[in-house]
Amino acid sequence: MQLSGSHTLNATREQVWAALQDPAVLARCVPGVKDLSPDGPDRFRGSVDFQVGPVKGTYQGFLTMRNATPPESMTLDLEAKAPVGIIRATGVMQLQQQGNATVLTWTGSPQLSGMLATLGARLLPSVAQQMAGKFFSKLEVEAQRKPGGVTV
């Protein structure tokens, strides 16, 4: 499964990048987050409520950032498990400055296991897009609060 998306955020690339590095910001932006805390450099641990169709669960997991080229791109590894299944994903995020705005494109290839794969695989793409939409619209507001922000 290959997922991708693109979002235009009304903030500079540096602001968006700074927001993405801030666990408190991420905790406020990721839909369903129950807790999120740093777990070593470039690594977070946390738990998230997440529902795909009928498959609902609290996922415990880790998010690791690597190959970071500030403020242009990074690779993200996600591993999260819940009684209903396991998600492993690798994604790449790229930031491009366009005027005062930042165009953020992402691609990801999630691997689902268990009930989540059986019951949720068909529904995941639309759920992922929906979550990304929510995440980036919140991230946009957070990014604008970072230093060097633009006013709209």
């Binding site: 296991s113 019951l119 695989a121 068909r122």
Partner: peptide, 14 residues
């Protein structure tokens, strides 16, 4: 089953 052996036709939707 997908290539990892996950059953992806496990409901009456599929």
């Amino acid at each position: 089953y997908d290539e990892q052996g996950q059953l992806i036709s496990g409901t009456y939707m599929e």
